[in-house]
């Protein structure tokens, strides 16, 4: 599966467009992590636990997007974008979407 932020695949041609595919996940931070982050907020700097939480969530969103692309018979997802939105206090939705295509 080729996943790319470009609108084409260098050296290949797109043979069919199969529409938009997407994957998303909603994550909440857990209490222990939040407490530690609260302490970290005093001295500032990177909140490693949150970086990890969000990048794990993003990896899962991408994986779900790829799953959907496979289900419609695509072998590439082009023009992939990410979006983050906060659903409620302490919970965020991470979305990955792109255009499923077959390339040859």
């Amino acid at each position: 599966m080729i996943v790319s932020t470009l609108e084409y695949v260098p050296g290949k041609t797109v043979t069919a467009h199969l529409g938009i595919v997407q994957g998303s996940t909603v994550r909440a931070k857990h209490l222990g992590r939040d407490f530690l982050a609260g302490l970290k907020n005093i001295v500032g700097g990177e909140l490693g636990a949150y970086t990890e939480l969000l990048s794990d969530a993003r990896a899962e969103a991408l994986q779900r997007m790829e799953q959907q692309a496979r289900a419609v018979g695509a072998n590439a997802v082009l023009n992939v974008r990410f979006a983050t939105s906060s659903v409620a206090q302490g919970a965020a939705e991470l979305l990955a979407y792109g255009t499923a295509v077959t390339v040859d």
């Binding site: 050296g11 500032g44 990177e46």
Partner: peptide, 22 residues
């Protein structure tokens, strides 16, 4: 070459202000 291989890459960071700057 004319047909390079492509792969998506990403990086992220969560950074917080300290109490004084806040």
């Amino acid at each position: 070459g004319p047909a390079p291989e492509t792969r998506m890459v990403e990086g992220s960071a969560v950074i917080s202000l300290d109490y004084f700057k806040r």
